[in-house]
């Protein structure tokens, strides 16, 4: 929040607070960490996601079996010391592939969520601000909303599938497809937030004082809408991981031998029916764990913004309090 455009600020007295704001930000961060430390059910989400991301980052440095070169002769070996999660029907080491997969799955999910959130929330913010301004602005807002309606008329997975078919298979297509099906979510979320914040008296005061749309958005609306947006993004990244894995599972996404959880589950499918569970079960567990972790992160942000939830004493705090009294 820098003061690059003094004209937009209109020389308002509250423009010069950068130092105080930074202090506030670190304070909030500290408080949030304390909040997490007292609630292990949320903390575990952060730990899981950190672990998954880390495994994707450092996998190439670890002394693992190659995730794409088969170990000739070792087909469908049950979990053992040499292959902690066994090998699949092509002789590939499942453990190393599970660790390498976040490089694809998490990357797709993060990139698609980020671009959808950026475009969706910016569009949603302007739709919210412009809806009742009349003229072209209202018209544009209505048009964008109707477009979101049309996208949402299609079932999510079906639309993503057909988008991949039209765009051609590949990582870029998956990222575009998952982003498009998620755009309306952010648009609606941000629009709702803007409608809520727009009518607060401090925002109206700024508007009357001559503040421009950009100033209103960056100064008042974005900071207030950030927590629900971040929570939605976190949960949505989990959904995006599921979508990407689902697309790869039916063969419309990332192709084998690239290590990816969905296609690994698909490869092990026939073996599961005949009783060799390991090629499919481990990637599925990793997938479920990742989505679980992202969901907990989203839930923690929502709980943090809910004053009742935030101030609720945890069991540990309560115990310390009662013990201290005795």
């Amino acid at each position: 929040m820098s003061e690059t455009d003094p004209a937009a600020l209109g020389g308002q007295p509250f423009a010069n607070e950068t130092g105080g704001e930074q202090l506030l930000a670190t304070g909030v961060l500290k408080e949030f960490c304390g909040f997490l430390m007292n609630r292990p059910s949320y903390l575990v989400g952060y730990l899981i996601v950190a672990m998954v991301a880390l495994s994707g980052l450092v996998a190439p440095l670890l002394p693992l079996a190659s995730p794409v070169d088969a170990d000739a002769g070792a087909y469908l070996v049950p979990p053992s010391w040499a292959h902690p999660m066994g090998t699949d029907s092509a002789g590939l080491d499942v453990f190393s592939r599970v660790l390498f997969a976040p490089r694809v799955d998490l990357a797709i999910a993060l990139v698609s969520t980020c671009w959808a959130a950026c475009f969706g929330s910016v569009a949603g913010a302007f739709v919210g601000l412009w809806e009742e301004r009349g003229g072209i602005k209202s018209g544009a807002a209505t048009l964008i909303l109707r477009m979101a309606d049309v996208i949402q008329a299609f079932p999510v997975f079906a639309l993503a599938l057909v988008l991949v078919a039209v765009l051609g298979q590949g990582m870029t297509s998956i990222i575009i497809a998952i982003g498009i099906v998620n755009l309306p979510l952010y648009l609606r979320l941000m629009r709702g937030e803007v409608l809520r914040i727009r009518d607060q008296s401090y925002v109206e005061a700024a508007h009357i004082a001559g503040a421009g749309d950009i100033y209103l958005l960056t100064r008042h609306i974005v900071p207030n809408a950030a927590p629900p947006l971040l929570a939605q993004m976190s949960i949505n990244t989990g959904v995006a991981v599921l979508l990407a894995a689902g697309l790869s599972f039916i063969g419309a996404g990332v192709r084998a031998p690239t290590p990816e959880w969905g296609s690994m589950i698909a490869m092990g499918f026939q073996n599961v029916v005949t009783g060799q569970w390991w090629p499919s079960m481990f990637p599925g567990l990793a997938l479920a764990l990742t989505v679980f972790g992202l969901g907990r992160i989203g839930a923690s942000i929502l709980a943090w913004t809910n004053p009742r939830e935030r101030s609720r004493p945890t069991r540990r705090a309560w115990k310390a309090f009662t013990e201290g009294r005795n």
Partner: peptide
């Protein structure tokens, strides 16, 4: 929390594995 994180196609495989491959109560 649990059901929200499990991919449906993987749960299908788990159910097939448990009820068809191991216990043989479900049809293929």
């Amino acid at each position: 929390i649990a059901a929200g994180a499990i991919p449906d196609f993987w749960l299908a495989l788990v159910l097939i594995f448990v009820f068809y491959s191991i216990f043989k109560i479900a049809p293929p």
